[in-house]
Amino acid sequence: IILGFIYKKLTVATLWKALRETAVTTASIMLIIVAATILGWILAREEVPQALSSLMTGNLNSATAFLLVTAVLLLILGAFIDATALLLITVPILLPVATEFNVDPLHFGVVTILSLMMGLLTPPVGTVLFVLSSVLRMPVGDVFRGVTPFLVPIGVVLLLLIFFPTIVTVVPAVIGM
């Protein structure tokens, strides 16, 4: 900041604008977190995680099937809902189910994040597409066409991680975590 003032790149007006934009962004993130926390509390009070757990454990017969269903669910939801809200809403519900299937929490976390990442890169809402569109000053359709080739390797990696959990857990096991 001091160097910005010295080189006259950062004026009081630009600093004020940056602080205002930061405050707006922080406030919107906090609203998302508050709303997700309230929704999570309501879902916990209504015992939705327990119901979902019994539904999934009754209908799915393996950890791999659970992770595939979770990946598809998060990919679809990620295309419509912000990642922060989705993490705050879904992880407290799905993590207990994952532990019932003896899925390592680290493995579950990696699959969750990768699935959400794919969802954020797909229309109709794909939040990352809109961010890239505004930064690059390009139409969202052009950005999606540019991003599409990267969805294939991400999908392949996601499937490899689901079917071969050792890929995720081998390094932490070796270093004693």
Rank of each mutant, 00 (worst) to 15 (best):
G4F: 00
G4Y: 06
I6R: 10
K8V: 10
K9N: 12
K9A: 15
L10C: 10
T11D: 13
A13T: 11
L15C: 10
L15E: 00
W16D: 13
L19D: 09
L19N: 08
R20H: 13
R20K: 12
R20P: 06
E21R: 14
E21Q: 14
T22M: 13
V24C: 09
T25G: 12
S28W: 02
I29E: 10
L31S: 12
I32F: 09
V34D: 06
V34Q: 06
T37V: 09
I38H: 04
L39H: 05
I42G: 07
L43W: 12
A44S: 13
A44Q: 12
R45K: 15
R45H: 15
E46R: 15
E46G: 10
E47P: 09
E47G: 13
P49R: 06
Q50T: 12
Q50V: 14
L52R: 06
S53D: 10
S53E: 07
M56Y: 06
M56N: 03
N59D: 07
L60G: 03
N61R: 11
S62D: 01
A63I: 06
T64V: 12
F66E: 02
L67M: 14
L67K: 05
L68P: 07
A71R: 00
L74Y: 00
L75E: 00
L75C: 11
D82G: 02
A85L: 03
P92C: 08
I93S: 01
L94D: 01
L94N: 01
P96R: 05
V97G: 07
T99Q: 14
V103M: 03
P105A: 03
P105F: 05
H107N: 04
F108P: 03
V111Q: 03
I113D: 00
